[in-house]
Design a protein around this nucleic acid. Structure first.
Length: 929
RNA sequence: AGGCGCGUAGCUCAGUGGGUAGAGCACCACCUUGACAUGGUGGGGGUCGUUGGUUCAAGUCCAAUCGUGCCUACCA
């Protein structure tokens, strides 16, 4: 589909451009156009390049982390697409079991619907999913994310669900999945088990209670505990076998307070003699350490909690049905009354909390499904060790190894409804059968009687771990699977190395025999300007779309203070918001946001989002916009086809071409090593500091003085040609503005194509390095800079042209002076022409290489100012010079440093010496004026 | 307790095989010049946390130390 939106030969193109960059006028247009035209789909026959979008949660809306990550992925996708790779960004969403079930339950209870059966709940859940799950994908489109939406997947899709069952069956048949009664982290609010990774440790100031357990005869012992209510689950008290204080205790029995039970004292090395009294109560059903100790000593397990962590019928009648925390109070009261509470002391402890519910978790003995990890981990460790999977930055592999070496079995069953139901069936006798579906189970095992499917669903991360291949039709060996798997790189935050990366590698290797991705690029986490994590409760969240579209202060305040968990936070949040965003947020546009993300994507782990930085990059967009407007205006003014240019390129053209090649190479290299910050910095530097500040300015001068139209055309051709390539080299970072401008620029230089995003990546080889031109321009810049400084320091108004004479300088420099005399006039406001000077009395000087540019004081310049300026320069140079002298006087340096380094320093000393001599001579003369 | 980071200009951060410390923002001065005041020109500002070591040479390598952050484990 060929589409030329602008006819560059029509004179109104540039004139029709808005004077100021205004992203809202075109961004959405292009994002729709690209998607409708199918540009996001893989194309061409190049090598495959594939990235899996870490599937966002269907409950979610786009936050800064998503926006940041998607920007980085999109930079990679657009870059590789332009490099000619057959590129696929596979997108989709995750059903997020617990999170979604929570959202929907809340929704239903708000509507007054109490949902007590699975079928109704799932019907509601799917209805909700269909109506609102596209929020985040819509938002991703606004970012310009070039995801191939035609292949969008959802973890509960039929195909992906079938893959999940297939994996479950295979791993079960191999004995890697097993069911058993184990102590697991139990969330009493959600009433489900969760895995170790879903536990959020939270520090809290608690208490340590010292409780006396009387012996049948004698005083008994004192134990220390942070959870007195669990004493009802006690089955023993343990001491260290070498603890002399209690040497005679093991074997004796104690009276368990508040009950009529007696429990034994036993000896175990696990006991820490230093802690508390050195006697520890053992509650195997409610503590992980006690559980292990219980196993060793074959102790009974007494489960005293119901699923909601209220006390069950294993406790004295008075406590039954009581909430665990109420029970704690009651236990303490009672013990105190019975004089069994010896003392209480404050104690800092870390409580395990559910990452979704926030509830304090209880270790609880339940039947769960587990995945054995040891044998899966070994090859996954190997894959990273031998480089089949490479972490960037490399040090994250340490974190990965650390976790993998100490891996524990994964509890994969959840007692909720929303998710992949476990494909296991029980017969009347409770015997379990695992298979794809009930039918196949019956056939395989010849079962006639009633079968009941397991009520549990799988942990969401179980299906996420399969995402790199389940989205590509695995277990079918599809063409896409062949082509795109293993995928190229996984882009994600360090917070989910374990959740995602590690499990994907294990599952990928186990089920496909291949790693799921060859590289893992770990990016930092976006924080606010003060380095705090962004969160609703802190009220420091920024919605990426507000940065794109803008938002006024009042709306922003409202947005931040509604829906808070604690209403008391509202005042503080409002205050901070009014302070930090006094004028609201301007509509900066997607490209400015993306450029900011790229610029911040260093290899550190915290990314502080600074809105002033974004404002600067929005200005950069404007700069680019206006540079293009200027270039097109120049072409229009010329009124002829710049392609007809026949004159050989001048030195300025050769220079900008050379610099363009360098910029392309640097950006290419930076993206290759995931240094988006360096790529952004290079683009910024090249476009602003080289193209705009120098080449555009030179163009004005060159065109104004061109003797023949052909010269002008040659200059303008380079102006446009370089711009066209510059647009391409920053397209991956800023897709919208580059497309909008490229559509206008490309036709002028004979580059055709439907879209910049389908065009090729610029090649450095097309912009050859030109050392001679670079040296010459460096000289010119130095000359201009010197004269400008002189003007500025002496406060000479712009309107006054400087009379300038030259002295010294070699033949080459005199040639350069002649060649650029007009540019010197225009850029440094020099009065033409620059003649050879006759003396040095009464002049201020600027140095350009070996040449001295003189400006007569003649009432223009102030002697005292000039003396000051000279002194400043002399001081600086002398400091450098003496440092160099010292270095070169050091025999060790001269002997041991590489000869080329020594030579370089000698050369520098010569130059510096010459400069210093001139400055000092100048100073003597100035003094005599 | 173990692991991993970070400490460079007022702020946010670069600094690539050791060889002249950089950018953006902020600040000061001047300038509405025909792409852009969302701009231009010039300028000020850092003994690179501290101490020691290796080296001819250390922001960079090594060790120690201080500060700070995160992760994992433990916490009766």
């Amino acid at each position: 589909m060929q589409e030329i939106r602008f006819d560059a030969s029509a004179p109104q193109v540039a004139a029709a451009m808005e004077k100021a960059y205004s992203p809202t006028t075109f961004e959405q247009h292009w994002s729709q156009r690209w998607e409708e035209s199918g540009y996001y789909a893989p194309r061409g026959e190049g090598a495959s390049y594939c990235i899996m979008l870490p599937p966002p949660n269907i409950t979610g809306s786009l936050h800064m982390g998503h926006a940041f990550q998607s920007t980085l992925i999109d930079i990679l996708m657009r870059y590789h697409r332009m490099q000619g790779a057959r590129s696929l960004w596979q997108g989709g969403t995750d059903h997020a079991g617990i999170a979604t079930q929570l959202v929907i339950s809340n929704l239903l209870s708000k509507q007054g619907k109490e949902c007590t059966d699975r079928e109704t709940f799932l019907r509601e859940a799917w209805r909700w999913k269909h109506s609102s799950s596209s929020t985040i994908t819509r938002q991703l489109r606004r970012l310009g994310a070039s995801v191939d939406w035609s292949r969008e997947r959802f973890t509960l899709d039929a195909g992906l669900s079938s893959a999940v069952r297939e994996v479950f069956v295979r791993l079960y048949n191999e004995g890697l999945i097993y069911r058993g009664q184990r102590l697991v982290n139990w969330d009493p609010v959600l009433r489900t088990a969760v895995s170790d990774l879903e536990v959020q440790p939270r520090e809290q100031q608690g208490q340590l209670w010292y409780i006396r357990y009387p012996a049948a005869a004698g005083p008994g012992v004192v134990v220390a505990t942070t959870r007195p209510e669990t004493l009802f689950g006690d089955v023993a008290v343990a001491v260290h076998p070498q603890d002399e204080r209690y040497a005679d205790l093991p074997g004796q029995h104690l009276q368990l307070p508040l009950t009529d039970r007696h429990i034994p004292v036993l000896a175990d090395e696990q006991v820490d003699r230093e802690f508390g009294t050195g006697c520890v109560k053992i509650t195997p059903a409610h503590d992980f350490n006690d559980y292990e100790l219980g196993q060793r000593h074959s102790l009974p397990m007494r489960n005293i909690f119901a699923p909601d962590a209220s006390l069950n019928d294993q406790v004295p009648e008075a406590y039954r049905g009581m909430d665990r925390f109420a029970a704690r109070e009651r236990v303490i009261q009672e013990l105190s009354r019975l004089n069994l509470l010896v003392r209480t002391e404050p104690h800092a402890l870390t409580l395990p909390c559910g990452d979704r519910s926030g509830a304090v978790l209880e270790p609880r003995l339940t039947n769960q499904w587990f995945l054995r990890m040891q044998s899966l981990a070994a090859p996954a460790i190997q894959a990273v060790q031998d480089g089949r999977v490479r972490f960037v930055p490399e040090h994250w592999s340490r974190t990965y190894f650390e976790w993998m070496y100490n891996i524990r079995d994964w509890c994969i069953s959840r007692q909720i409804w929303w998710g992949h139901r476990i494909p296991a069936w029980y017969d009347a006798a409770g015997k379990v059968y695992v298979g794809h579906d009930e039918q196949s189970v019956r056939e395989r095992h010849g079962l006639k009687g009633e079968l009941r499917q397991d009520e549990d669903v799988l942990d969401t991360w179980f299906s996420s771990a399969l995402w790199p291949f389940s989205t590509l039709d695995w277990p079918q060996s599809s063409a896409d699977l062949q082509r795109f798997y293993p995928t190229s790189v996984m882009v994600t935050g360090f917070d989910i190395i374990f959740f995602w990366v590690a499990r994907m590698i294990m599952m990928g290797l186990k089920l496909t025999g291949e790693v799921p991705f060859r590289e893992v690029y770990i990016h930092g986490l976006v924080r606010d300007a003060d380095g705090n994590k962004m969160s609703k409760s802190r009220g420091n969240i920024i919605d990426p779309l507000d940065l794109i579209d803008g938002i006024d202060l009042e709306t922003l305040v409202q947005k931040r203070v509604t829906g808070l968990l604690r209403a008391s936070d509202a005042t503080r949040i409002e205050e901070h918001t009014r302070r930090d965003f006094a004028d609201g947020i301007a509509a900066y546009g997607t490209d400015a946001l993306r450029f900011t993300f790229a610029a911040m994507a260093t290899h550190g782990r915290d990314i502080r989002f600074d809105i002033s930085r974004m404002e600067g990059y929005h200005n950069f967009c404007n700069k680019l916009w206006n540079a293009t407007r200027f270039a097109l205006l120049m072409v229009e003014r010329e009124g002829s086809d710049v392609l007809a240019a026949v004159a050989p390129a001048g030195v300025a053209e050769r220079w900008i071409v050379s610099r363009t090649g360098v910029a392309i190479q640097r950006i290419t290299d930076a993206i290759g090593v995931y240094r988006f910050d360096l790529a952004a910095a290079e683009a910024h530097e090249f476009i602003w500091a080289e193209y705009c500040d120098w080449y555009v300015e030179l163009t004005k001068s060159l065109c104004a003085h061109a003797a023949v139209p052909e010269q002008r055309q040659a200059t303008l051709y380079s102006l446009l040609r370089v711009l066209e390539s510059a647009l391409r080299m920053i397209h991956p970072i800023m897709p919208f503005v580059t497309e909008e401008l490229w559509q206008r620029v490309a036709p002028v230089v004979g580059v055709s194509g439907a879209s910049i995003m389908l065009h090729s990546w610029p090649r450095a080889a097309d912009f050859p390095r030109d050392g001679a031109a670079e040296a010459e321009l460096a000289w010119l810049k130095q000359a201009v800079g010197g004269l400008r400084q002189l003007r500025s320091m002496h406060n000479i108004p712009r309107s006054v042209r400087l009379p300038v004479y030259y002295r010294e300088g070699d033949e080459l420099e005199r040639e350069w002076l002649t060649r650029h005399t007009l540019q010197l006039q225009d850029l440094a406001r020099v009065a033409a022409p620059v003649e050879q000077g006759t003396g040095s009395a009464g002049v201020a000087t600027a140095l350009a290489g070996g040449m001295v540019l003189q400006v007569p004081l003649a009432g223009l310049l102030d002697k005292a100012t000039e003396m000051q300026r000279l002194d400043r320069d002399i001081t600086r140079h002398r400091k450098d010079f003496s440092k160099l002298e010292g270095k070169l006087a050091n025999a060790n340096f001269v002997q041991r440093a590489p000869p080329e380094v020594v030579e370089k320093e000698r050369q520098r000393r010569r130059e510096l010496g010459a400069i210093l001599a001139r400055l000092e001579g100048q100073r003597v003369e100035m003094e005599n004026v």
